[in-house]
Design a protein around this nucleic acid. Structure first.
Lengths: 290, 290
DNA sequence: GAAAAGCTGTACCAAAAATTTCAGCCAAGA
DNA sequence: TCTTGGCTGAAATTTTTGGTACAGCTTTTC
């Protein structure tokens, strides 16, 4: 769950713009500073005061007076502003696109979808191939029991993963997050076991406790989380982070689902020799029921 | 004009790329630093060491060791590299997100993701805005109890929807698909009730039966399904189809999740006046627990 | 199961950065 | 020409930051 209501919708006037407007009211050295900054905006401002001063051919104090004049409390504050402006500008192509550009499709749905797609792309970018492969390898080892778990929202994803993987291979189950429900199961968890935990912000203490306990007993922990990393990361062997920010009061789990499905697909492929007969057998059993 | 041989063809091996490749050779805390940096690349690295360390949840010395390990002489040198890389990238808009750049990330993951993204786009295209809006309207009516249900795989999505919506409003629950579990609950289902069913191919008879029974008693049925439409569509008031084909032995539910999250977001927004205090109350209750 | 190797954080120190002080300088006005 | 007001930069000062040594702990190895 994220914080409350609206986000600032208006584009704040860029600092560069303001500088151009106030240019004539500057003193000569201030103008040199301003031109220097504008000519390599905003990178010229990201160095140190001394560097900035020397490039502009003026003294450090003059640079300080310049940024003070612009209304900043000091040079670090000025730099922070530049960074934030730059970051916002760089990320905007995703966020800004299509508030109302597609005429069909529900507008709310369409813009939400664009945002989610951005998350998926970012998620893929930030996952190390080796990490992903290692997890596939781990889940493909049929001698190692696999246990899925998750928090109040992400628990559903853990269930989703479990419901697929349990058909592909054996020794797959789902563990409820509440300590009362897993405490006694822990005696069975050991070095061979693999815990796959889903946990995103508003990290849940009980899930963390479960993983810590399991890790202490030698289990291998795999964590699917957000970019800020659940505390479980401390005990996790492998971490797969997904971007989750969406134009909603809630976080989006689409990235986690993507990773989950990709993992399941990869494991299924790797275990195909044994998975195929298994899946056929499951199908047969289901049809026998009536 | 000649061919493109004159253009600098070499992709400067971005630092991010190097980090992804070496990821598995990192120590646990180094991995946290790496993930932190990659998730907000490169802005996360432009702050001070202390800031970086605290955001990554590690100590300052670990950050220093991390950048040393990457081959930099010190933190300032590391920052300078980031700035230069950023500047270079920003000055050549074409270099941004080139196709060759996309190819890294886990290959299996990347191609899977592209496929899923295609599904999401197609899903949005094929949903009638009016239908989506009507469902939002329906779920926002607090006088109407809402029941979620789904099949063996999609049940997890129904649970996911339920876990969110139950915080936004009251009278929300989840019904298990097995007839034995819902038969007796059916006497309570009537004209005011709303059933939201998730069902994709290999359509499940029990879920269909549940919806038919509910519909017969006057309930309004909303169906999230695949483009081939579950038989439930015959009794459903509203149908929201999602594309599900993925390069896997399994279908992808990402489109269904997208619709689900968009619905939850829209309903939360519409009910914000009453949802906000509710969400705060839930949060308070959770924190009281210890 | 004990010893060794390696990893991580606390506490501390050194370095460098930002900021302030102050004296000189230049231009405008008497 | 002298004075005044405000810029400007060298140097001193203060604050912040990056870097290091060391001790505790975990993991690995024999």
């Amino acid at each position: 769950m994220k914080s409350d209501s609206a986000v600032p919708p208006i584009d704040p006037p860029s600092l560069a713009e303001r500088i151009r407007l106030e240019m004539d009211s500057f003193t000569p050295t201030e103008k040199r500073a301003a031109h220097m900054l504008l000519s390599h905006y905003p990178f010229a401002g990201l160095d140190t005061v001394a560097e900035f001063a020397s490039r502009a051919g003026i003294s450090a104090p003059s640079v300080l007076r310049f940024v003070t004049r612009l209304g900043f409390g000091g040079f670090p504050e000025f730099q922070r502003h530049l960074r934030e402006e730059l970051e916002a500008q760089l990320l905007s192509p995703l966020a800004k696109s299509s508030p109302s550009d597609r005429s069909h499709g529900a507008p709310a749905l369409a813009s939400f979808a664009e945002s989610v797609i951005g998350n998926l792309r970012a998620t893929v970018e930030n996952i190390a191939p080796a990490e992903f492969e290692a997890v596939v390898e781990l889940l493909s080892d049929q001698r190692r029991p696999v246990h899925f778990t998750g928090g109040r929202f992400t628990g559903a994803l853990a269930r989703y993963a479990e419901s697929h993987l349990r058909i592909v291979r054996s020794h797959v189950d789902y563990i409820e997050g509440q300590p009362a429900l897993w405490r006694d199961r822990m005696i069975e968890i050991g070095r061979k076991d693999v815990i796959v935990a889903f946990d995103i912000r508003r990290y849940q203490e009980d899930v963390t406790a479960l993983c810590e306990t399991a890790a202490r007993q030698g289990a291998t922990v795999v964590l699917l989380t957000d970019p800020w990393l659940s505390p479980i990361a401390r005990v996790a062997r492998h971490v797969l982070p997904a971007h989750i920010v969406a134009p909603s009061n809630w976080d989006s789990s689409a990235g986690l689902l993507l990773i989950t499905e990709a993992l399941v697909a990869a494991v299924t492929k790797r275990l195909w020799e044994t998975a195929k007969p298994r899946m056929e057998a499951v199908e047969r059993l289901r049809n026998e029921k009536p």
